[in-house]
């Protein structure tokens, strides 16, 4: 007795197609870096080092140290009546004495500097 369609289909399906070879995927290695990439990296590193060196240099050369030094030197010698008299005796004006006492390390003002006392003295302050 001949097979009907579904029976014949079932018979045919018993023959399974041969499985194909395994799909082998080769993982490509990391692409070699362009030499320009390494040059850029080196340049960037150099720039960063120079920037760090510059910032560190600026911080260490701040005038804070000088101020502190001046502050300590200003108050090292207490101002006594005798010393004030001696200073005033040899000076041409009170302003010069006060300037010398305020800025003991810079004995003279630079050409582009002026005394704060002289500036304040010129102003007419209304009380």
């Amino acid at each position: 007795m001949p097979l009907d369609d579904s029976e014949f289909e079932s018979y045919l399906r018993r023959f399974r197609p041969i499985s194909p070879e395994k799909l082998v995927v080769k993982r490509s290695p990391e692409p070699a870096r362009n030499p320009q990439f390494w040059l850029l990296c080196g340049g960037a590193a150099a720039v960063i080092l120079v920037a760090i060196w510059f910032v560190a240099g600026v911080r260490t050369s701040r005038p804070i140290y000088d101020i502190a030094y001046r502050d300590t030197t200003i108050y090292v010698e207490p101002l006594t009546a005798g010393r004030a008299n001696a200073e005033l005796r040899g000076a041409s004006s009170t302003k010069e004495v006060l300037d010398r006492m305020a800025f003991p390390l810079s004995s003279r003002l630079a050409s582009d500097q002026q005394s704060a006392f002289s500036v304040l003295g010129k102003e007419k302050i209304k009380l």
Binding site: R16, P17, I18, S19, P20
Partner: peptide
């Protein structure tokens, strides 16, 4: 589906290796 795909390809071009290459 690989096996059926290769069988289908083989029936088209006649050669199993070519069909398998196409499936891959």
């Amino acid at each position: 589906n690989g096996a059926a795909l290769v069988l289908f390809g083989t029936s088209m071009v006649g050669n199993r290796s070519i069909a398998q290459d196409a499936v891959h």
